[in-house]
Design a protein around this nucleic acid. Structure first.
Lengths: 231, 231
DNA sequence: TAAAAAAAATGAACATTGTTCAATAAAAAT
DNA sequence: ATTTTTATTGAACAATGTTCATTTTTTTTA
């Protein structure tokens, strides 16, 4: 009658470990082979279980993918939070933008999952997904401060933050989803970089000169997220 | 020996008609039920043939989808070309942007296909896809003229056009792919509209006041492109 | 420690996808 | 009319996510 609480705790812990194993395998496959390769059978194989077993750890595939989205969001949030120490809001705004571009281009698979893919996002509105807002809130805060300092025209901070986010998101998502066939791929680095400086400078004063060292050059080769289906 | 050229022409024509039927059905289903519903068997059913028959009209599904992309591009091009009559480049630039937003929000399925989805885009780099560039070329031309008139800072026209494109693309794709859960959907209209005016005005002088009548209000309800799989 | 209960994992199925291909039907050429 | 060419079918295949009765393993109880 008195359940052995020790073994129950251990079971709980082991379940958590296996969940972690599944997600970890999913992350690895996502990064190394692209989203298409992240399949239930593949994951089951990876953790040496049978496909059906996964369904006692996750309700369905969407739940797995959503967990990956959360991780990607946490990753981005760290990047954003690392910029918060910069005291000058204009400088911080520029830095946030650069960090965003860097994150997107260096972790295209995460970025795609987080901001482009359709799959697991229905849930986001329902589920608790505070991780998804953090970055935006930091951006909005910074934009607001920029307005106070006269670096940006006064306007609704939501609107202005959305505008800037739209710009950087548009840039990287056009690249990731390969809508720039007009432009040779060698120019992507310059294009992204140039557009960022052009638009940002046009909108607001340039902060004190800063080397673009935080932008990796050259960007990692754009991996084909939609890998060959045929073997 | 002398093949009946009459009947050959007719056969050719009939094949073309069936091809057209397939694509037309695909467009209808795409718009009314979303991309997920555009399936080989569904299309076969629609034209009252067997699934396998489609493969004598199209190499594979990607070829069908690519044909839809081309149509979507032609649609957008018409919208862009309609703006070319505006003599003042600044005014034209604003109009092009507004037309782009309108197109995207009123034809989200086409837009998604054209600029967001992964599926059929590998081919674009290879295939002849002049339709895909037309709109960008018009934009770049206008941006160039704006620079000449001093409406925009002088810079590489490719870079500047890409920057502006990125912005509007980012806006609509964040909406279409539902990454704005922070913001209530009723505000989308104001958000899009406000961000456009904010960013454009910050970058360049506002052209003579123009009612925003070309932006539909309210925007059509965002349809769930990733419809319910389960019935 | 042995039996009973609970939990976990399997394995085989199902319904969908896109796609192929030998066999058949239809149409055109001889 | 026969032959040849073309078009269409229908059945299969592989791969996807998912379910569920059965079996195995683990835990609890006696």
């Amino acid at each position: 009658m008195a359940k052995n609480i020790k073994s129950l705790q251990r079971r709980e812990r082991e379940r958590e470990e296996l969940r972690e194993q599944i997600l970890s395998a999913a992350m690895n496959i996502l990064v190394s082979e692209g989203y298409e390769a992240v399949t239930i059978r593949r994951l089951a194989n990876e953790i040496e279980y049978t496909p059906g077993a996964l369904y006692s750890y996750f309700k369905d595939k969407d739940e797995i993918v959503f967990a990956l989205v959360v991780r990607a969001a946490q990753h981005l949030n760290k990047v954003f939070q690392a910029q918060e120490s910069l005291p000058n809001p204009l400088e911080r705004l520029w830095a946030i933008g650069r960090a965003y571009l860097k994150f997107a281009m260096e972790h295209q698979e995460y970025y795609d999952l987080l901001f482009i893919m359709s799959t697991p996002i229905q849930k986001i509105s329902e589920a608790e997904f505070s991780e998804g807002y953090t970055a935006f809130i930091i951006l909005r805060q910074t934009v607001g401060e920029c307005m106070e300092h006269g670096y940006l025209p006064r306007a609704d901070a939501d609107v202005a933050a959305f505008a800037l986010w739209s710009f950087v998101h548009g840039s990287v998502s056009l690249m990731i989803r390969k809508r720039l066939a007009i432009i040779p791929e060698e120019k992507y680095q310059d294009l992204l970089h140039g557009a960022y400086n052009f638009l940002m400078s046009s909108m607001m004063p340039r902060h004190h000169e800063q080397p673009d060292a935080t932008l990796p050059k050259p960007f990692p080769k754009l991996k084909d997220l939609q890998k060959s289906k045929k073997k």
